[in-house]
């Protein structure tokens, strides 16, 4: 049982939906992003998605592209991202951390070494956007063997025929991408998303968390109501990019979390 499984069990016992927050490690600098991360559980965040910057984030919109650029320009590396997670773990041993990003920096480090280091840093799960089930032998299967959850994305194009393949080696939770598109784009409509979530939940016992296109407390509430929780990324990253003080960033996160928890 990973911290992710434990967290969902606890939320279920309380009858609460999960609020998942995404930030980019090292954005705009290591100290600021570490301070934001430290404050996320207190703001009501149940699970932290920690972005690993990449030069070519082909599934991300401008907001997260720019966050990655700021982070890389500030000298962020995969090692610094792992160190940041390890430092967080010293004061918080329950909030799950999911690393999210693209495969090449992991492949470049070496999968075996990366998994040992990630586990040691207190990482609980991985979301790697450019590894579909067809490439499971690369990272998904070794990650599960190392005791990390591998969280897969399902999308509106994942039809009934394909869904079992997507669910097969997924663990922790399933991340449903509410729109065809990139992060930070069009708003998701709960009425459209609800039947899709129901379709997936009929085939799995895993929690289904919905992300992409959620930017306000009301939207967080609306989407969380029809799933097991929701993810907000670009809206938070936008505040950080605008140079807002950490306290203000966290206040906005708290409002989003409260929205999701009202559901």
């Amino acid at each position: 049982m990973t911290r992710i499984d434990a967290k969902f069990a606890a939320l279920r016992a309380e009858g609460k939906k999960a609020f998942v927050a995404y930030i980019m490690a090292g954005d705009p600098d290591l100290a600021t992003s570490a301070a934001v991360m430290q404050g996320l559980p207190g703001a009501g965040v149940d699970i932290i998605e920690l972005g690993m910057p990449f030069t070519d984030p082909m599934a991300d919109g401008p907001t997260i592209q720019l966050a990655g650029q700021r982070s890389l320009e500030g000298g962020q590396t995969l090692q610094k991202t792992l160190d940041m997670a390890a430092a967080f773990r010293k004061s918080d041993n329950t909030t799950p951390i999911v690393l999210m990003g693209y495969y090449n920096p992991i492949y470049s480090r070496g999968v075996a070494k990366f998994l040992v280091d990630a586990k040691a840093a207190g990482i609980d799960g991985l979301i790697v956007v450019d590894l579909p089930p067809e490439e499971d032998a690369e990272l998904c299967i070794p990650a599960q063997a190392a005791g990390l959850n591998f969280i897969r994305l399902a999308t509106p194009t994942t039809d009934a025929k394909r869904l079992p393949k997507v669910l097969q080696n997924t663990s922790g939770f399933l991340y449903y991408v509410s729109i065809n598109g990139i992060t930070g784009a069009a708003a998701a409509n709960p009425a459209d998303v609800a039947p899709e979530v129901a379709r997936i939940k009929a085939k799995t016992d895993l929690p289904v968390i919905v992300g992409f296109g959620i930017s306000t407390p009301d939207a967080a509430q609306g989407i969380a109501a029809i799933a097991d929780g929701c993810v907000v990324g670009s809206a938070i990253v936008k505040d950080i990019g605008a140079g807002k003080p950490v306290a203000e960033v966290l206040a906005n996160v708290a409002a989003l979390a409260a929205g999701a928890h009202r559901a």
Binding site: M58, A59, Y103, V129, D130, L131, P132, P133, E134, E135, R152, L153, A154, T155, P156, T157, T158, D159, R162, V166, V177, N180, G181
Partner: peptide, 20 residues
Amino acid sequence: EQGRFGLFGGRFVSETLMPL
């Protein structure tokens, strides 16, 4: 069948594009 030439090639894309 995996779209590989030895180690190289493959299908490293997001899920949205896989069915297509």
